Simulated assay, not measured.
Amino acid sequence: MTDPFSDVTDAHVHLMPERLMAAIRGALTDEAGWTFPAPAAQREMERALRAQGVTRYVALPYAHKPGIARELNEWLVERCAASEMAVPFATVHGDDDVRAVVREAFEAGARGLKFQCPVQRCAPDDPRLDPAYELAAEYDRPVLFHAGTAPMFEDSPHVGLDRFEAFVDSYPEVRACCAHMGTYEASGFVDLAREAESVFLDTCVAMSAAAPEYLDFDPASVPDAVFEDLAGRVMYGSDYPNVPYPYEDERAHLLSRDLSPEAFDALFRGAAANFLGEA
């Protein structure tokens, strides 16, 4: 088995301009009371990730309002081009010129799309996003959604298993990941992943040792069999740097599991390669 502390792909990392990142962290502090020990500047982030055995990370933006996605995507693709670690994703708001913004991002090198559904107020099955999904199919690019109700979105109409499943039914050819293991509907998202080979999950926050304290979710409620049965479609992710606990806590519970070498390898490396269309 490859050492789980080396050559890791972190499939869920946020890379954004300084002012936007500060605003996001401020909102999380106000709403959840979280504070953030990790640096948010790219160079310091990458140094910290390398120290944890991460050699590659998926860099995720999101556009909380119309009119900012194009510039944000350009900024992120440029920053990732200068990095040996970063894999750029793009975003778009439902009220933008969706097709034009996404095509430009893909042509510039973006490897996928990210939607923070409750913040962006666009559900996975929002028809405004159909042009983005059509391009994702055309360019063979995956889509990563915050489509679950955690940590504070249980009343949001833009998230939930039904909205994600409607997307999967409409675009079965597009690889789609639900972040945070789909919490707080983790069992339903796991069942959907068992049924649909295009569905991926990532572990960020929900599978951390800190999840009971910060997410009010017990990671042990997801059995080891899930990681074995869905090996190759459950990706390790951290939500770094916007987590209120040390990076080590993100992996502590995962590493305590009694998984096969193959499942560990898929979790920390192989599933991300599958999601990105490299396998």
Rank of each mutant, 00 (worst) to 15 (best):
D126C: 05
P127Q: 07
R128T: 05
P131Q: 08
A132L: 09
Y133F: 15
Y133K: 09
A136K: 04
E138Q: 14
E138V: 11
D140M: 02
D140N: 14
R141Y: 13
P142D: 13
H146K: 14
H146Y: 13
A147S: 15
A147Q: 01
G148R: 05
T149E: 11
A150G: 00
P151T: 07
E154D: 15
S156L: 03
S156P: 00
S156Q: 15
G160E: 08
F164D: 04
E165K: 12
E165R: 15
A166H: 10
A166C: 05
F167E: 01
Y171G: 02
E173M: 13
A176E: 05
A176D: 10
A176V: 09
C178T: 14
A179T: 15
A179S: 13
A179P: 07
H180W: 02
M181T: 00
G182Y: 03
G182M: 07
T183L: 02
T183K: 04
Y184T: 14
A186E: 12
G188I: 14
F189Q: 04
L192D: 02
A193Y: 03
R194L: 12
S198D: 01
V199D: 08
V199W: 12
L201C: 12
T203N: 00
C204E: 13
C204L: 08
C204P: 01
C204M: 09
A206H: 10
A206I: 08
A206E: 03
A206Y: 02
M207Q: 15
S208D: 09
S208E: 09
A209S: 15
A209Q: 09
A209H: 10
A210C: 07
A211Y: 11
A211P: 06
A211L: 06
A211K: 07
P212M: 11
Y214E: 03
Y214W: 15
Y214C: 06
L215D: 08
D216T: 11
F217Q: 01
F217W: 15
F217K: 10
P219L: 07
P219G: 06
A220K: 10
V222L: 09
V222G: 00
P223N: 05
P223S: 08
P223V: 03
A225W: 07
V226M: 13
V226Q: 10
V226N: 10
E228V: 00
E228K: 10
D229Q: 11
A231I: 02
A231P: 04
R233W: 06
M235I: 10
M235P: 04
M235F: 12
M235C: 09
S238Q: 04
S238H: 01
D239N: 14
D239W: 06
Y240D: 04
Y240Q: 02
Y240R: 00
V243A: 02
V243R: 01
Y247Q: 08
Y247D: 00
D249T: 03
E250W: 00
A252D: 11
A252S: 12
L254W: 02
L255W: 10
S256Y: 04
